[in-house]
Structures are given as C-alpha cells and as structure tokens.
C-alpha cells in the first residue's frame, strides 16, 4: 500500500510538475498569472486525438505536430492578447482576469468542437502493469516519469547554460536593466511562452494517453499546477517542480484518511496554509510576494 501510494504520488507529481514548470517560468519572467496555460495543455491532447484518432496520422508524427501546435498556440496568445495589455501598461491583476477569460473561452470552444463526452486516444492497449517493489506500475507511467525528468534536465540546462536562458533570467530579475543591456524583452517573452507551452504540450499528451480527454482537463490541471507552483515558490521553476511533487504525494497519501473525492480540497488546504504562513513558497524569495 505504501509503495503503491508513493508511486501514484510520484506519477501525479510528475504531471503536475510539467504543468507547474511552464506556468512558473511564465510567471517568473512576465510577472502575471497565466491561467490560459490550462487550455494549452488540453488542446495538445485534443490535437493528438484529432491527428491520430480522427485523421489516422502516424502516432509519432501526430505527437510532434500536437506539441508544435501547442507551442504556437501559447505564442499566439502572448502576441495577440497579452502584448496588447502590456502596451497599455495594464496591471498584473487585469492580466490575471484576462487570462481567466481566455481559459473559459478556449474551454468553451473545445466543448463546442469536440463535445462534452470523454475522448480516448486509444494508442496504448490496456497494458498489465509490472510489479515493482510491491507497487504496480504501467509502461506509460514509467514513460511519464522519465519524460518529465528529461524535460526538467533540459530546462535546467537551458536556463543555466545558454544565452537565451541567461537573458530569460535577466528579464525575470529586472526588466528595465536587461532592456538597457540590449535584451529585447518582447522577444524573451515570446520565447518563454514557446518553451512553457511546449512543456504544457508534452503534459497534455501524457495526460491524454494516461487518463483520456475531457474539455475541463485543462482547468483542473492548471489548478494543480498553480497550487504546486505557489507551494514551491511561484517565481522559481525548481521550486515549482518540488512543490508539485510534494502536492502529488500529499494528495495520494491523503486518501488514506479521506475519500478520494477530497483530493482537490486537500490541494487547496495546503495552498491556504502556504499562502498564510509562507506566501513566497518553499524556494521563493521573500520580496517577490509583494
């Protein structure tokens, strides 16, 4: 029981962390809450469904197309919507409400185009899980954990070693000074949205394969992602990843005491505790909460 819950917690944590890392990358750099990250995730799953299950493309081509489209979709939101707000010097709260409106908008569009029923991608036949130290784990779940670990490593290298990553961190740290140094912040914002949305695309595909597709999946994942990000420190990507794994574990161990329907409530009680006593999160810096 213990190892099973541990494994389940890690898998849930890996998915939340994929959501949270993109979300918190965008928050750290652009300084606003991008709720519309949720529909980017959902759309990636639905694109895979469209290309693979409806149009019958090759599975791997469908996956690559879905991820590329998710990245473009994130970029398009930034260029077509958020940029307009930045030009007007809108406050972060206005951007938050705007992104919330975008979330509802795209969720309703998915509902109209694909319907409310649950969609199955059906690439992976129901595989019998293998036993691993007393816990049952399916091959796909192993893929989820490995894929997220690889992505986090790549993201870490990108942030620390490349020129783009350094520029991103510079903009996150101080926008004005980085502009003086010749960094085009708009260009960096575009890159941040592309990278964040690519990770979101991977998350959407993995969730689609693991749990099927629902129009509201983006919202529920987004909620978990931002809870993880707030717990870990909303402006810090490693913090967001750490917080998400913590959230996944606490939720799954929580079912020992409470019915599984209370998973969401557990997530929010943790969120509340953190907002109250440590609003900057585990790894966040204190001044970022203001």
């Amino acid at each position: 029981m213990f190892t099973q819950l541990l494994v389940n917690g890690l898998i849930a944590g890996a998915i939340y962390a994929l959501v949270a890392s993109g979300f918190s990358l965008i928050y750290a750099t652009c300084k606003f809450v991008h709720f519309a990250h949720g529909p980017v995730i959902a759309l990636a799953g639905y694109f895979l469904y469209l290309f693979f299950s409806l149009l019958g493309l090759n599975f791997w081509i469908a996956i690559i197309l879905a991820i590329i489209l998710a990245a473009f979709f994130g970029l398009a939101i930034n260029v077509l919507v958020y940029k307009k707000f930045r030009q007007r010097k809108a406050s972060p709260v206005i951007l938050l409400i705007a992104s919330f409106a975008l979330l509802i908008l795209f969720e309703s569009l998915i509902l109209i185009f694909f319907g409310a029923d649950v969609k199955t991608i059906g690439f992976i036949k129901i595989a019998k899980g293998s036993e691993f130290a007393g816990a049952i784990i399916t091959p796909l779940q192993i893929v989820i954990i490995i894929a997220s670990a690889v992505l986090f490593a790549l993201l870490f290298l990108l942030m620390k070693k490349t020129k783009l990553g350094k520029a991103m961190r510079a903009v996150a740290d101080n926008k004005q000074v980085s502009e003086i140094c010749g960094i085009s912040t708009e260009k960096i914002y575009n890159w941040v949205f592309i990278i964040g949305s690519t990770i979101a695309g991977v998350a959407g595909i993995l969730v689609g394969l693991e749990q099927n597709l629902e129009p509201t999946m983006g919202t529920s994942l987004m909620i978990k992602g931002f809870t993880g990000a707030v717990i870990g420190g909303i402006g810090s990507v490693p913090g967001a990843i750490l917080g998400s794994f913590l959230l996944g574990l606490v939720e799954n161990f929580g079912i020992w005491f409470l019915p599984s329907g209370y998973k969401d409530a557990i997530a929010f009680i943790i969120l509340f505790i953190f907002l109250l006593f440590r609003p900057q999160g585990i790894l966040g810096k204190k001044n970022q909460s203001n």
Binding site: V33, F226, F268, L271, L275
Partner: peptide, 15 residues
C-alpha cells in the same frame, strides 16, 4: 493583495 488574494479566494471556491 492582488494576485495572491485572487488565487486564495479562487482556492476557497474550489474547496
């Protein structure tokens, strides 16, 4: 304030 209040009240709504 701001973002944090919005997120906390949204969280309350989910609970």
């Amino acid at each position: 304030k701001g973002d944090y209040l919005a997120l906390a009240t949204l969280g309350f709504s989910f609970v």
